[in-house]
């Protein structure tokens, strides 16, 4: 949608140059990981920035990853934890945000502040208490433990962002629904949620990466083989004395793929939301 009257060539060029430079900087580490994952061990250390050539090309890392350990399972675990946590964060976050933005009740403001506090205080401070809780409830070494913790970790930001957006949804629309006999749940799911979909995609993208990448809680709450996540699984290649760099890089490369797919799904929502709002 180039608007000739408002753009000039030098300005466009400058903007693109800045964006390209930023893209290059942001993608560089990923690029280095991916190319080195496909090289032999010697080539990784000799020429870390070289593209894999006929001589240095080697898929040993991927072979190790797929044969050793239980990587398909780790992937499955990570995916379950991430997707279920995201679903909970979005569902409960959006519901709490709706309640806070829509209903006037005693303690509304206090509740909002209490939830916002969660954004400022890192959940890891409570690790010991969480561990005690999980031990007491017998949830140690289950994926459900991780899902609970990540849901708790993600909800404050979700509520914060979504309640702001929900305040912008037309009150008349919700009232029309009430007069037509829609339940509050139908109003929430059918009228409000579709209109804040872009905001929900934003929340999903922001919440997803820290969950997928987290090492801390899997290590503490679910270190058993059965419930290992990818990030934790990749640690087997990082030894105190020897590190299998091929396998580490290969597992990291593989770990990028699912997040990329999830991101593409959400970002489409994001863009659709933004443009539909803009054109209207």
């Amino acid at each position: 949608m180039a608007n000739r009257a408002r753009t000039s060539l030098p300005r466009t060029l400058a903007a693109h140059a800045i964006l390209l430079a930023y893209t290059a900087i942001a993608l560089f580490p990923v690029f280095v990981i991916v190319i080195n994952a496909m090289k032999s061990r010697r080539a990784i250390f000799a020429h870390p920035l070289q593209l894999p050539g006929p001589k240095s090309f080697d898929l040993i890392g991927f072979q190790t990853v797929l044969s050793q350990g239980n990587f398909p399972l780790y992937f499955w675990n990570s995916l379950i934890v991430t997707v279920v946590s995201l679903a909970f964060i979005l569902l409960f976050g959006a519901m709490a945000a709706f309640a806070l933005s829509e209903y006037r009740f005693k303690g509304n403001l206090l509740m909002g502040l209490y939830l916002a506090l969660g954004i400022m205080i890192p959940i890891r401070l409570g690790t010991v208490a969480i561990l005690q809780l999980m031990v007491a409830t017998g949830l140690v070494n289950t994926l459900f433990a991780l899902i609970l913790v990540y849901t708790a970790q993600g909800i404050p930001l979700a509520v914060f962002i979504l309640s702001e957006f929900m305040k912008t949804v037309s009150a008349d629309l919700k009232n029309a629904g009430r007069i037509d006999g829609l339940s509050e749940y139908r109003i929430f799911f059918r009228l409000v949620v579709p209109l804040v979909r872009p905001a929900m995609a934003t929340v999903a993208v922001f919440s997803m990466i820290p969950i997928w990448n987290d090492l801390w809680f899997p290590l503490i709450l679910a270190p058993a083989e059965r419930v290992k996540t990818v990030t934790l699984g990749a640690q087997v290649f990082l030894g105190q004395f020897v590190t299998d760099w091929n396998a580490v890089l290969a597992s990291l490369s593989l770990a990028i793929v699912p997040v990329l797919v999830l991101y593409l799904v959400f970002s489409r929502q994001l863009i659709r939301g933004i443009t539909s709002g803009a054109v209207k």
Binding site: D172, L173, N175, A176, L182
Partner: peptide
């Protein structure tokens, strides 16, 4: 509740269901 009052309301912003 509003839906049981046998009323209908027309709003300034139309408030049609977009979907």
């Amino acid at each position: 509740p509003p839906s049981k009052r046998e009323i209908a309301m027309v709003f300034q912003s139309y408030a049609l269901y977009p979907h």
